[in-house]
């Protein structure tokens, strides 16, 4: 692992938390849109009968997204700490190899062997854990895509239901629009997270 790779790891892991923070904001917006839609649907009464269960569904999706993103965020922070450890253990190994090279004529050079061996083991262990955690994080990110996809389907249904709502048509269409946009933003941000992580996975 060279300096450039380490740098890209730090940047990739840090950028994931930034992207996820945006996803969290959008999920909260969906939740707000659901509450708003519920109020409109309530006022519209029978004209928006088909819309009422959809609002609960939107709310559930937002809740699910928030929970998933919270868990992913915790995992991303752990991964960041692992990136630091990974960097440290690799650095220690590199430095001990330098000591080995520079102490060839020293009376006690062989006493370094155990430290070198331990350091190499620790570095391998760190790398193994790191790779495993990247795979787990990629899976978690894939999971967030599901509610985002479902939200887009719901947005399409919402538009149909909104068209029956008479004077409430515009308000409910706006809700459908906002859910659709939010789902798209989540999809795009999570895709970027996954692609950053995949690069780290390949470069390590």
């Amino acid at each position: 692992m060279n300096v450039g790779q380490t740098k890209s790891q730090f940047v990739a892991v840090a950028s994931i938390t930034a992207e996820l923070s945006a996803v969290m904001d959008v999920a909260k917006e969906i939740s707000l849109a659901a509450a708003n839609a519920k109020a409109i649907a309530f006022r519209a009464g029978d004209k928006a009968k088909g819309f009422q269960p959809i609002t609960d569904f939107i709310n559930e999706l937002a809740k699910e997204t928030i929970e998933l993103v919270t868990a992913i965020n915790e995992h991303a922070l752990l991964l960041y700490q692992m990136t630091v450890n990974n960097h440290r253990t690799s650095n220690v190994y590199t430095q001990l190899k330098l000591v080995e090279a520079q102490s060839k004529n020293a009376a006690y050079s062989s006493s370094l062997d155990l430290s070198l061996q331990n350091s190499q083991n620790k570095m391998s262990e760190c790398k193994r854990d790191y790779k495993l955690n990247i795979t787990q994080l990629l899976d978690q990110l894939a999971e967030v895509m599901h509610p985002a996809r479902a939200a887009r389907v719901i947005a399409a249904n919402s538009r149909i239901e909104a068209s029956q709502a008479g004077e409430y048509l515009q308000s409910l269409q706006a809700v459908a629009e906002s859910v659709d946009n939010a789902a798209q933003v989540i999809h795009d941000n999570v895709t970027r997270c996954r692609s950053s992580l995949s690069i780290v996975q390949l470069t390590d």
Binding site: Q95, L96, L98, V99, Q102, S103, A106, A107, Y108, S109, S111, L112, L114, S115
Partner: peptide, 16 residues
């Protein structure tokens, strides 16, 4: 200075 320092110390004492 870590590497040159430890390499120098190994002229006098083992790591442990």
């Amino acid at each position: 200075l870590f590497a040159p320092m430890l390499a120098a110390v190994l002229h006098y004492v083992p790591v442990d």
